[in-house]
Design a protein around this nucleic acid. Structure first.
Lengths: 255, 255
DNA sequence: GACTGTGAAGACTTTCACAGCA
DNA sequence: TGCTGTGAAAGTCTTCACAGTC
């Protein structure tokens, strides 16, 4: 099974597990805060607490990077900040473009967290001619027509898509064709990309839906004190339901 | 993907794995699109493609909900929309408050994806007195002083935090004290909450950092064609590095 | 014949618990 | 003594592959 992988092949991360990679930014944030308070060293226990994970996990994560701690003492804060930054590729400058300057795109353009982590917003792009030239976050919005030129002139390899869902795939295709190989997608749609291009998505409503799921559980559990198969509601219960083409089930949702 | 929850052992989700729950909104979105095109049934293969997962995973996921398909045919779109909505708790109305009406908070307030999924923005709250009364997304911003009253008057159990990092924990504490049991956190900080409260976080810069990590790998791999232990760079390689209190390593990062 | 539902295998992730070093 | 680094165990998630059903 050489190349023909379906979609997300875990991207051969030179031994560092994906789950660990996803936590490195968390550690980095906690470490940066310590660094700003001039704390010289930190134990796995303390750092784990600051990052919101447990210490065994943190130590295991760090063990994939190397042996950067000192037994009996802990980790040198500055040194670890450097190592993690390097591992994440943050010691270099990453120009990014944001496409789709609506409410969300504008908020992203104004978001300080990017610049402070080695990301530089190289351009803001929107399809609306009326937006062109208007300043957002101190930077003139450019028109989609120039997308390809902007990408190549600035050597951009990371693109952020904040367009409506309908436009996202098209924008994505153009970004990829122009040389972008990493995409952060805020549009509520699935993007199809060729092999070698990474996509990460952030969907605001999905997060709320997951919360709602657990919230519903909590409410249900209040009544059923025992931990059984708490089928508190008279609703359809698991496998036993057989659907009919009609039945008592509402056929449509509140769209 | 942004995960949440401070620690807690998987919140007793009545058998449905957390990973499955996290994908239900994805399926729901794909199904809703099919429904709008009046597609009556769909196979696991088709739906999986539309949701960006593979079909085995999708079938396994659905098997946790019940036997809702028909062998040889596929799934009834409307029926599945209903079942998933119910499972996620979207057949009821969830009032939410957004605290922190800066760029991001305002973007969230304007975001259409909430309302269409059973979430109703009940109030916008900000600490800045100058914001109070100003309309955002057709709704007057209210002052933090009234937070507790707003929560209880509206029966809010889900809160969205979009404040600066420094204010987030305090806002969180007040939300929780007022009765909120689910929190979606956009502030780049770890929130501490009591047992029984769920937190999910979305951190924009973390997603970019993960992309940067993979981006850096891609750049590195270009040189090393063979798939060996591609230690292409002359940099520190795994466990063999021994740190000194100085050495050739820069001690400080570009903050 | 087509497609779902699911045990079983495999991969990945977390946690435990302790040896080993400063 | 105090704390890291890590094998091994436990737990979770994904994938396979095929029996079962329409």
């Amino acid at each position: 099974m050489a190349t023909g992988r379906t979609h997300r092949p875990a991207t051969r991360s030179r031994g560092i597990p994906e789950a660990t990679v996803a936590r490195l930014p968390l550690y980095l944030r906690a470490l940066t805060a310590l660094s700003e308070r001039s704390v010289p060293t930190v134990s796995s226990e303390e750092l784990a607490a600051a990052a919101g994970v447990n210490s065994a996990k943190l130590r295991k994560d760090f063990s994939y990077l190397g042996s950067y701690g000192t037994r009996g003492v802990g980790y040198d804060v500055e040194y670890l900040v450097y190592q993690i930054s390097r591992e994440l590729g943050l010691t270099q400058d990453w120009p990014v473009v944001i496409v789709g300057i609506g409410n969300l795109g504008a908020a992203l353009a104004n978001y300080g967290g990017f610049a402070s982590r080695g990301f530089r917003v190289a351009a803001l792009i929107d399809a609306d001619p009326a937006m062109a030239g208007k300043p957002v976050a101190g930077m003139p919005v450019q028109h989609t027509d120039d997308l390809e030129k902007i990408i190549s002139d600035n050597g951009v390899s990371i693109g952020v898509i904040a367009t409506p869902a309908g436009a996202a795939q098209q924008v994505c295709d153009r970004l990829v064709a122009a040389g972008v190989t990493s995409i952060l997608n805020f549009a509520p749609t699935v993007l199809t990309v060729p092999d070698g291009v990474d996509v990460r998505k952030v969907d605001l409503s999905i997060e709320l839906q997951i919360l709602a799921f657990h919230e519903q559980r909590k409410a249900g559990e209040e009544s059923a004190a025992d931990d059984g198969d708490g089928a508190a509601e008279p609703a359809v219960t698991k496998a036993q339901h057989r659907k009919g083409p009609d039945g008592d089930v509402p056929a449509v949702m509140p769209a």
